[in-house]
Amino acid sequence: MSEKVRILIAKPGLDGHDRGAKYIARALKDEGYEVIYTGLRQTPDSIVATAIQEDVQFIGLSLLSGAHKELFPKIVDKLKEQEASDIHVFGGGVIPDRDIPFLLEHGVEAVFTPGTPISDVVKFIESVK
């Protein structure tokens, strides 16, 4: 049997809304993945450092403050700098549809907005792992 997929769920920026992040973390755990949750107020540097240290294949970013266009691409860039671009980045939160193409162009592989069933997230993980 192959090793379990490891996923880091992270809260970048100053946003304190963690209901969604904690739900995703717990639901993915229930789906059989190894999940690590960072807690609030993580900088792009600390998220990337944790991801590398914990040897994860995925980073899931959650942000509801509107800072996603600044912060999500920063994390993708830091991964490149650290030669860790093999880690897949996905995101979610309060993200208007019009911002999604921008995020996809900047290395975020999938964006899951509120109301997405967990099965869609699982499908994504299984398709790229």
Binding site: G13, L14, D15, R41, T43, S65, G66, A67, K69, L71
Partner: peptide, 22 residues
């Protein structure tokens, strides 16, 4: 906004991306 709520000035490193947002 969040920097104000957490006691950071807008020019602080921590405020990047969050100034005037919420």
């Amino acid at each position: 906004d969040l920097p104000t709520q957490i006691g950071y000035d807008s020019d602080a490193e921590e405020s990047i991306g969050e100034v005037g947002k919420v």
